[in-house]
């Protein structure tokens, strides 16, 4: 159990996919116009990560080594389709907001990267915890970025008003703000680490 906890925190802090490994930049920038959108995207990716890690780890002896990458991609695409259909049916507003980025979880390098680097070499339970850890690390990073952009842009956080909207500058919600806020967040984390 202690070991599993270590895997979990490693995913959230030590190997945080966004701030440390710098993977999966497209959804990180594209879906974080508000804290809620960022969190939803993170949770959708977490679900795919946990499922794909568990399946790949349990099937690792059945998949021939030469065709492992296409096999992994098909498995991941199947889970992404599941998420896509569930979101479309139960939370259509959020699905419309995230749009193209839900099917694009397939080509998110975090998912395939964890399958190749962790799930293909380890047992099912540790792989599950690795999926949860990396997924939560990704979700936290996206929520933080979304919250910063929402706060700077509209004066709100999770749709609750913090300061009057007139004082916010809309540029942070638009495309350039995504790049600039993420750049400064990574710089701040580099500063704290050194």
């Amino acid at each position: 159990m202690k070991n599993n906890l270590k895997i979990l925190t490693n995913g959230i802090i030590g190997e945080n996919p966004t701030f440390v490994l710098l993977l999966g930049m497209c959804p990180t920038l594209g879906t974080t116009s508000s804290a809620l959108n960022g969190m939803a995207m993170g949770l959708a990716t977490t679900f795919v990560l946990i499922c794909s890690n568990m399946t790949i780890s349990s099937m690792k002896n059945l998949i021939p080594d030469q065709v492992r990458i296409p096999a992994y991609i098909v498995l991941i695409a199947a889970f992404v389709t599941v998420v896509q259909m569930l979101m479309e049916a139960f939370i259509p507003a959020l699905y419309a907001g995230l749009g193209l980025f839900i099917p694009l979880i397939v080509v998110n390098c975090i998912v395939l990267g964890r399958a190749e680097a962790y799930a293909a070499k380890n047992k099912v339970i540790p792989s599950m915890f690795d999926g949860i850890g990396i997924g939560l690390g990704f979700t936290l990073a996206l929520t933080l970025l979304g919250a910063c952009r929402e706060l700077l842009g509209t004066g709100k956080m999770f749709s609750l008003t913090v300061y009057p909207e007139n004082f916010g500058s809309l540029i942070f919600v638009l495309a350039p703000g995504a790049f600039i806020v993420l750049g400064f967040l990574i710089a701040i984390i580099n500063k704290i680490k050194s």
Partner: peptide, 11 residues
């Protein structure tokens, strides 16, 4: 130093 590499590229 903290801005070198990716952060300055993003900005």
């Amino acid at each position: 130093k903290a801005m070198q590499g990716i952060p300055i590229a993003l900005i």
